[in-house]
Design a protein around this nucleic acid. Structure first.
Lengths: 193, 193, 193, 193
DNA sequence: GATGAATGAGAGTTCATTCAT
DNA sequence: AATGAATGAACTCTCATTCAT
């Protein structure tokens, strides 16, 4: 069970994003995902342990790619400010361009008992770490306050971006998420200085 | 059905906070709440439409009291900075003192399909408005940047505080939430200036 | 759950005998029992833990009554031979008169993993003990061989009766089970002497 | 489909005895047998119609060999008493030496709806016939009672031996099954006389 | 208002069986 | 002959909700 590769694995994952985004995690039945993926119900259980495993695999998939690509972005930046800008920009761009993923990330994923689930927290941690590294670097270079608590600062930074995305996902009136890049960056960078 | 008052109403609500915090929303059965409240299963349905209604009523209850008390706090402040400080302080203090409420607010509440549910967003809106009023006031008084988009700024402020609380709720190692008041305030106020 | 009294409890048990006898344990669905008992599927689970629990409760019910009634029968016998005769007679009579129970006892009950299940072996033990007491008594009175191993003798006695019943249950051509009382008694009593 | 010969046929059968004995018929999945036999799941279906067919083939295999070997044993006996002794001895010896077969024969095999299944009763019949022939011979030679009903006597004999084996299989404390040969023989032979 | 026994829809999951390779 | 991925029917059990008392 739970083969992590193979064409079907990916097909089911893609069907799951769509279905979770459309119907919501709890209202989605395995049968719905299976139908969307054009496989039999049982096939889902060849590749995933259960429904929760589908959601978590989904998230790990998304987050791994997210963090990898963000790393290459950051590689091209020359200073912490540029990096912070890149983080915010990449975060908002990515979710704006993949609204289904955004819905799953911001809403459905939080439907799982997070106190237990490390399948969610672990992939997030590498993103958190990336943010913290930028803050540390800024502190070392004297760009950001030395007395700043890095962890707390990271929470503020992530919390701000995350809330901005959540509001966008839940908003009934569509607007450009990318437009918020600059104001959010300005607030956060000043907060760090 | 769905009487909104009565002694039992309150008893059930209190039993629900405990039970949701202990077991999690989805794993909690109406029968569990009823047992904790020492009433019959059916009695729950005299006071609430259904399980979701219990959770939402709970939140409305909490938020109404939260906003009312926060308002009196703010009344005693003399300038936007003090008010922002009061908001952060009150928010963190309240949830630190009521860990069960915090668990429900930060975790369990997010288990409900938020795209539909205005029972959750409405009570939050008055809190959001309070924050926005403070920002507006700061802008008018020249304390905060004039070109600040109030709504975006509010998202950053709320997102930051909310994330700090969520991390605290989910953390396995206990620490003082109140200790984060000052650093969070400093970051946010600088971000607004 | 698993209230051991109440009208429904009995109704479901009676429906279960019929259904198991007609359809066989493994082919019987809880829904079949529920329909036969004219209750909802869920009601079965108020009174029984699961399907296996229904079968075992059934057997315990049957065996308890069986052993109780057999005891009163034995009370009226004056010597071990009469008692052995009573055991065989009562055993064969009872099952001949309750063919559904016989089917369940001889066939369906053996569909459960007996190596684990003490819900089956325990009620049987009191029957075994009754048989062993008669054999012991016979040995003490010099009626049966002193060097007879009581336990082994009991196995022979019970095995013989049990096989006779099983053959009768599985036979396609109907015949009188009671007719076998005398020949079986004669063989067994001689075997004991 | 359902080839009755070939090397794999035997390999699967041997894997099945082990697996059924270890896990129990109903809890055994075809995949378990296949893995134990080191063949693919589908291969099982080349040699057997379905899961039930595996169990029944198993039993037929066992019983055919059992009856054949028993016949040669009986051939060396000079009178019905010796033959009865041989039957009991061979029956108990065989199962004591093949505990996995014993488990399958005494427990797992009875998990199949016996009212329908002639795949089980047919191979047993030849064993029954062997027993009946010995009884008949005894009656003819005046060793056993003339008025004995052969069929009933056979049921008593087989039932006794079978129960002795079943008790041994299900017993948690190990003991020598062969030790029961003599007492069982004595009881049965006296019963017949 | 209060009760709690009864309801029954609903969905996750398993696994015997098939069949294209 | 052999494979093993894929199938999808089957069925248990849960639990929110109702309603007669």
């Amino acid at each position: 069970m739970a083969k992590r590769s193979g064409e079907k694995h990916q097909v089911i994952l893609e069907a799951a994003v769509k279905t979770f985004a459309r119907t919501g995690y709890h209202r989605t039945r395995i049968a719905d995902i299976a139908r969307e993926a054009k496989v039999a119900d049982g096939t889902v259980y060849i590749y995933f342990k259960n429904k929760e495993d589908v959601l978590i695999s989904l998230f790990q998939n998304i987050m791994n790619r997210f963090v990898e690509e963000l790393k290459t972005e950051l590689f091209q930046c020359r200073n912490p400010d540029e990096k912070l800008d890149a983080i915010i920009g990449y975060h908002l761009n990515t979710l704006e361009n993949k609204p289904e993923q955004a819905k799953v990330t911001q809403i459905e994923l939080r439907q799982i008992d997070q106190t237990i689930n490390e399948g969610i927290s672990k992939p997030l941690l590498s993103y958190f770490q990336l943010i913290e590294e930028v803050i540390e670097e800024g502190k070392e270079q004297g760009l950001y306050r030395r007395n700043l608590n890095t962890r707390t600062a990271r929470k503020v930074v992530f919390g701000a971006i995350d809330e901005v995305v959540t509001c966008w996902v839940m908003s009934s009136k569509p607007y450009n998420l990318a437009d918020l890049k600059k104001p959010v960056f300005e607030m956060l960078v000043k907060g760090l200085q």
